[in-house]
Amino acid sequence: MSPELKKLGPRWVVFGILGLVVTVSLLFKRSTEFPGTPVVKGVYDAVEELPEGSPILISSDFDPGSEAELVPMMKAILAHCWRRHLRVIVMSLQSPNAMPLAQGIVEEAARDNGAKEDEDYALMNYKPGNLAAVLAIGQDWASQFPESYKHRKLADIPAMKGITRLGDFKYVLCITATTSVDSWLLGGVTKYGIKLGLGCTAVMATDYYPLLDTKQITGLLGGLAGAAQYESLVKLPGKATDGMPTQSLIHVTIILFIVAGNILHFAGKRRKPEAA
């Protein structure tokens, strides 16, 4: 390592600069529009094409660790669904932690959009078993979800009217930070032929792009960028839209760090033979 780099050494200088960039950028927010790419529009169009009153299933498969990326995405999608007067059913395949979080998100979004519980949306439970659970609801919904998250019988929930199995949903959206999308792909798309959309963390996005070509998913929302694009499409700027300029600034800062690090590294290398 070059002496300059050593002098710069303490990692908290790098972290401090990044922290400062993030804080200052968030303090001076600028509203920006993010045009929806075809990949994100695939989900938007699928929701847009559904007839009024259609049931749509959202699998909320994330816990608080992925809140920053996936909550804005889920709120924008929920708002879009209720604008289109769709019936939203929310469940989880991920972990028991997911449903309490989903409940908070859905109830908050419902207040903002004037959606009524049990009429415009219904919360189901977390269902363990991944693929086995998807295969089971493909045959009989009530065998896996005999009652809602709040212990109401399915027959007492108007939003569940006409839903007896997975195939009754016109569209399934998996918002995930885990591999639960594989269960939806294998069980839902491959076995039962459902239409699937995916919202996932940025880390996962590259793994699922090939599914777009083969039309196994209609669209993909990857991380904060995907969420910001969806917010722009539904004209509902939220936390993702607020966060994206900061994201871009961090990118620039990191690029500058990489350039500076390389310059210092090569400068140090050139000096070494002279010293010898």
Binding site: A68, E69, A202, G223, L224, A225, K239, G243, Q247, I250
Partner: peptide, 10 residues
Amino acid sequence: VMARQSLLIG
């Protein structure tokens, strides 16, 4: 890296 940045931003 982008995902981690999003968490930091949040």
